Simulated assay, not measured.
Amino acid sequence: MESTIFDKTFRDREGKIVIAQVPNLPLIVWIVTSSLSLIFTTGIINTVLDVLATGSLFTWAWMELFQGVNYFRRTLGLFVLIGLVTLKAIY
């Protein structure tokens, strides 16, 4: 059977459509540290949480970009990586 662009974009190797997945460790760390930075809004704790959140989101995006299960996930990683770098360059 010939793969279509839809199959390459949204299906994994097993033929299942994959748009969202269970969060992996870098994404869980980003969620937790971002949430905690809403509680600790100033000081060294906020700075450490921001660094951890940025690093873990960067790691997640990098992993998606190079190890994503389909083109959609890889494109998502690319856009998050570009957005993260752009936001950090602006602020």
Rank of each mutant, 00 (worst) to 15 (best):
R11I: 00
R11M: 13
R11W: 07
D12A: 02
D12W: 09
D12G: 07
R13Q: 13
E14C: 02
E14A: 08
E14W: 04
G15R: 06
G15I: 00
G15A: 03
G15D: 05
K16R: 15
K16W: 06
K16E: 15
I17D: 13
I17P: 10
I17Y: 14
V18C: 07
V18K: 15
I19T: 08
I19H: 00
I19K: 01
I19V: 14
A20M: 14
A20K: 13
Q21A: 09
Q21F: 02
Q21K: 15
Q21G: 04
Q21C: 04
Q21N: 11
V22K: 13
V22Y: 12
V22F: 12
P23S: 01
P23Q: 00
P23L: 00
N24L: 05
N24W: 06
N24D: 11
N24S: 07
L25R: 01
L25M: 04
L25D: 00
L25V: 06
P26D: 07
L27H: 01
I28P: 00
I28Q: 11
I28Y: 08
I28D: 05
V29I: 15
V29R: 08
W30G: 03
I31A: 14
I31M: 15
V32K: 03
V32S: 01
T33R: 07
T33V: 01
T33D: 03
T33A: 12
T33P: 00
S34G: 15
S34F: 09
S34W: 11
S35E: 02
S35C: 04
L36N: 10
L36Y: 12
L36W: 13
L36F: 13
S37M: 15
S37R: 15
S37K: 15
S37N: 14
S37P: 01
S37Q: 14
S37L: 09
S37I: 05
L38W: 11
L38A: 12
L38I: 04
L38Y: 11
I39C: 04
T41L: 10
T41P: 09
T41W: 13
